[in-house]
């Protein structure tokens, strides 16, 4: 599978380099550089990341949205203060454009057992998904994945770190 990823990356880089090379204008050097930059990135990313990057450039004009929703200990219910942010994401995702998919990554703090936390992280991500779907977002573009306590945002074993780690990240 990994070798496939590499092949894909190199192939795309090759295609881009090829297109850039065919663009016989006085901006050719710049285009070459851009293609080379992308090729570097592609050496260590997969196809999906390519879509992320293309979309990110479209969104430069849009207001940057916070993309983390926080939860209470052993809780998977949305807190009232998350509502405004989720509505803004729902607004954006109701007309997502082509090929947009969003990953809802659920996380927990380090306390308690790991597999229970894996389930809890999924519950949190599901809560976000269900809210977005109720607001008219297509379920098909939302993918839920839980990392449990395996990917903390903040290090440390204290209330502040734990509060930052009980979260769902909305990843475009």
């Amino acid at each position: 599978m990994i070798s496939n990823v590499f092949k894909q990356g190199f192939f795309l880089a090759f295609v881009l380099a090829f297109l850039a090379g065919c663009t016989a204008t006085d901006t050719m050097d710049d285009a070459d550089d851009a293609a080379a930059d992308r090729a570097d990135e592609r050496g260590v990313t997969t196809g999906t990341a390519d879509r992320d990057r293309l979309r990110a450039s479209e969104e430069d004009d849009a207001e940057a949205l916070d993309n983390v929703i926080y939860f209470g200990f052993d809780q998977a219910t949305l807190q009232p203060e998350s509502r405004a942010l989720l509505l803004a994401h729902a607004e954006r995702l109701r007309n997502p454009g082509n090929n947009v998919s969003v990953r809802l990554e659920g996380h927990t703090d380090e306390r308690g057992s790991r597999e229970y936390n894996m389930a809890l992280g999924e519950r949190r991500a599901n809560a976000v998904r269900d809210f977005l779907v109720l607001q008219g977002v297509s379920r098909d573009i939302l993918e839920v994945i839980s990392y449990g306590e395996e990917r903390p945002a903040a290090r440390g074993s204290n209330d502040s770190a734990w509060a930052q780690n009980r979260r769902v990240e909305i990843k475009y």
Binding site: I2, V5, T46
Partner: peptide, 8 residues
């Protein structure tokens, strides 16, 4: 998505 390295 990040590139994944796995080594067995």
């Amino acid at each position: 998505m990040k590139h994944i390295f796995v080594f067995v």
